[in-house]
Simulated assay, not measured.
Amino acid sequence: MLNQGWVYRDRVKPSQAGLSVLDFYGQFYRHSTRQEWAERFENQQIFVDGKPATATQRLAKNQRLEYHRPPWEEPDVPLNFQILHQDLHFWIIDKPAGLPVLPAGNFLENTLLAQLKRQFPDETPVPIHRLGRGTSGLMILGRSPLGRQSLTRQLREHQITKIYRAVIPAGDYPDQITITTPIGKICHPSLGTIFAATADGLSAHSEMRVLERLAKVSRVEVQIFTGRPHQIRIHMAAMGFPLVGDRLYLPGGLPAIYKDANHSPLPGDCGYSLNAYYLKFQHPHQDKPIDFFSQLQASCLDF
């Protein structure tokens, strides 16, 4: 079944003024080739200030760009999620691995946000934070203005305790380890940029604890004290032991990049074993600590 299509909007920055429209899309949206972008001009899918654009048209500062993507068939994903807690101010849900939280790439309607809007159209709860598509487990949804404001503040000020469970390869690492490898953006041939371990990145802090050592893998628990994108995936890889099933991040914390971009792994790929297992924070209205445990971790980490 096709979705309804989507309009991607941009505004030209001063540094981008003078570029042709084709150069703009070719440079900043490298998920498509220049030939594919050129075909979209022929199909009148690209607009500048509301008018069909030509490929050679030069851009000026603050002009409005639109790419009208026609309807497409989205990949199948698990659309069911479990609601663990509901009150006037927030919800807690257990998200299955494979379900994207927000629209991106090939996902528009097969996302958690779209499902929430569809099931609760009159008062849609809003995700306070994200989980990667391949990550299962607990998410906080803000419902009331007070709930959204309080929980967003707690998240920003690192007052929410977040503990994950994961599976990594067996190794001689200690039972407990602190990882503070900085995380930032690096260049990527098809995505433009991607988050990875990099010396000039932002500070990041994770604490790993081994729960069980098996012959080939270890079950571990990771508490994160910062919320960098893909933090646990990058930190486990930086330690030398990427999450089992993670094709993207290599030992050292850099992404795998192949000569054939069509076969290079992407951040949204699934297959790794990571579960947002535990959350603790202050109730927005009652001002008391409250905590939750994921019900999905047993099957997610079954090895």
Rank of each mutant, 00 (worst) to 15 (best):
Q115L: 10
L279F: 12
L279K: 04
Y29H: 14
T178E: 15
Q45F: 04
I140M: 14
L155W: 08
K95H: 05
S218P: 02
T135C: 12
G18I: 02
V217E: 15
Q86P: 05
T180H: 07
L65K: 04
G184Y: 03
A60S: 13
P284R: 02
P169S: 04
Y277H: 15
R153K: 13
F107Y: 15
H285R: 12
P284D: 07
L146Y: 06
A276H: 06
L254E: 10
E66I: 05
S218N: 11
S264M: 06
R40G: 02
E109N: 14
D302E: 14
Q119I: 03
P70Y: 09
I186D: 08
P174I: 03
M1A: 08
K216D: 15
T54A: 13
G245D: 06
N262Q: 15
H235L: 06
H235C: 05
S150Y: 00
I163G: 00
G268H: 12
G105A: 10
R233D: 11
H263V: 13
T193D: 05
H188Y: 08
G253Y: 02
F241G: 00
P71V: 04
G268Q: 08
L108H: 00
Q57R: 12
R9E: 15
E39T: 01
L141T: 01
M236K: 00
Q16M: 09
H158M: 12
A104H: 09
H129C: 11
Y67K: 00
R69A: 12
F120S: 10
P189G: 10
R34N: 10
A215P: 01
I160P: 07
Q16F: 03
